[in-house]
Amino acid sequence: MQKVIEAAGLKLAYPRHEPVIKSASFEVETGEFVFITGASGSGKSTLLKSMYGSMPIYGGELQVGGIDMGSISGSKLYKLRRHIGIIFQDYKLIREWNVEKNVMLPLIISGFPKDVCRAQAQKLLTHVKLSHKSDKYPMELSGGEQQRVAMARALAHNPFLILADEPTGNLDDYSSQVVWDLLERANEELDTTILVVTHHIPEMLSANYRHLMIENGVLYEIH
């Protein structure tokens, strides 16, 4: 199995603050479904941010897709991000773009022709049961619908890794179910590595998963 994420003695800290993550050593292999849990403010989201290069490495080592995140340059980072799908708790949809264009974003960035982007966006919107709202704008959708659009966007370019930050934190049961179903399907059918940061692991999940937990800035393997 290929290693997708490798962290050794990883330390993360915001400027002029004590390290949030004091020590994190773990490996994630291709096709794994990993949950990272911990109390509020424990550094879960900070750890996730370091994996897509939005958080500088304070100490130790972190490799994502074989690339050292401590010394990654701007253009290499953007290249890496084009192969990662990210889901945010606050959805981060582009307000002035309609649903379809939001889903097309990773494909547009990767330079796919417009018709290919559109076809893929429509396919994914059908999966998240929002094909009838492809012309709507994010502000016209409910929170659950917005997160399903964000989910479709994260899957649009068949990423090798999906990073999800509290993806169902603000969602109703139906939208949560759609999100977990899709993550499971991507993991099972496409062998996509999934890493989810959450308060608690959903009971409805049928996939085999690993559970890591952060406590007092240290990452532990639960199972």
Binding site: Y52, S75, L80, R82, I84, I94, R95
Partner: peptide
């Protein structure tokens, strides 16, 4: 800012 921020997170180069 918001749009540029989101595009940057998905790896969009400056020109895009």
């Amino acid at each position: 800012k918001e749009r540029m921020q989101i595009m940057s997170l998905f790896g969009a180069p400056v020109w895009l």
